[in-house]
Design a protein around this nucleic acid. Structure first.
Lengths: 224, 224
DNA sequence: CTATCAATTATCCAACCGCATAATAAGGCC
DNA sequence: GGCCTTATTATGCGGTTGGATAATTGATAG
């Protein structure tokens, strides 16, 4: 008695892994980590649950892979913003801040996603390391932009300024994600440019409306 | 054959509820929301699992109660900081910022706890409302301090300044919680005072070392 | 056209989840 | 000191979880 099986087609390894990772991220985003069960992931990816074990060592490994994928996409997109930005240091920094405070970086899903993975990060040392790397890379990028703008102050001061500016961006990012209706279009960007400008002692607000594609994903949120 | 039962003593309602809520928060802090099962909560509270249903309508109700308790404690302690602060507007604001960037507010557990509940908040409208109230209350407190310092500017400007300063505090709080070893003692406070001062155009750094008890809990982190 | 083998599915399993209910004992009241 | 209320424990249930294994398919090479 052959019970009718679901017909299927073979896909190469990368495609399948990618589909599983995408499905995992989607589920975590919409329902938290607990919503990403092996069965739900498989269903969303259009396969059956057992397949996960065929491509990953277990559910934990899939989660770790999804997290790493998310972080790498973030850093890659962040770098892309800088590649298309102008050459004036002030405009480049303004573009960076603007990109970090606009959709799709500012997004209701993004915050949930970030929060969900932070807990995993708190338990799994491997995830913690993945995070630390990407987080510091993001801050270093910001610090580099500040250095270009300020004409290379003392490294200590640069680090402090980068931390403070990063905090502003993170904080505004959080509020924008969490309370999307509480801010008018562009208000978040305006606030960010003013605040970062105030901290650095430079006027960035004039740069806001030009040369910023505002179309990629970045940001680097914490955990330990 | 009377199988030996665990001996117990009766406790009044408030004590038991409190114990269950405390146990819930502890478990969420150390293992995320998924670690807070009814059995684990009961064990940590020193009772058996069935008792939870006797005091709460279900596990969800207990989680909601725990979240509300956490938020209320935060706001209460935040108000306490202001009560013991001096009368000079500048010193009061400095004390507020300082308290938000020192232990026990800055704490590894705090961030995990916040992140865990944010996901629940994302699903449960009741929790979302609980959050929105406490969050806006915190920001209003900050805005009030800024108004005292600046001599009442236009409400629009006050709101914008409060949002920006709140973002700085939130961002530094996150980094401090997540990367406790990345900052020297007092560095976070120093950074926060300088950044908030820069945004408001006032020098707060001189106020840092005095009159701030640095011993209560506050902060108000986002979600939607 | 067929044999081969990896990819995919189907099925089973032990553990755990939250919840419901029955049995039991603790403590106040007279 | 005995009784009555009820807080508390103990036990059982249906459902779901992640993981393991066996069966079956589809692609591919010869």
């Amino acid at each position: 008695m052959p019970p009718d099986r679901k017909p299927y087609h073979r896909a190469d390894e990368d495609t399948r892994r990618q589909a599983l990772i995408t499905a995992t991220l989607a589920l975590v985003a919409e329902g938290g980590a607990q919503a990403a069960t092996v069965r739900a992931i498989a269903q969303k990816a259009g396969v059956t649950a057992g397949l996960i074990r065929h491509y990953f060592q277990g559910k934990d490994a899939l989660m770790a892979a999804a997290y790493a994928h998310l972080m790498h996409r973030m850093t890659a997109d962040s770098a892309a913003v800088l590649r298309t930005a102008p050459h004036d240091p002030k405009a480049r920094l303004a573009a960076f801040v603007t990109a970090a405070l606009c959709p799709p970086v500012v997004d209701g899903e993004a915050l949930v996603l970030w929060a969900a993975f932070m807990q995993e990060t708190h338990r799994d040392p491997a995830m913690r390391q993945t995070h630390a790397q990407t987080y510091l890379a993001f801050r270093d990028q910001l610090q580099s932009l500040i250095a270009d703008l300020l004409g290379h102050s003392a490294p200590q001061d640069l680090r402090r300024l980068a931390i403070a500016c990063n905090a502003v961006i993170d904080g505004l990012w959080m509020e924008g994600c969490a309370l999307p209706d509480a801010f008018a279009m562009g208000e978040l960007v305006d606030l960010g440019l003013h605040a970062v400008g105030a901290i650095l002692g430079a006027d960035l607000a004039g740069q806001s409306a030009q040369g910023t594609p505002v179309s990629t994903q970045s940001n680097m949120k914490v955990p330990a």
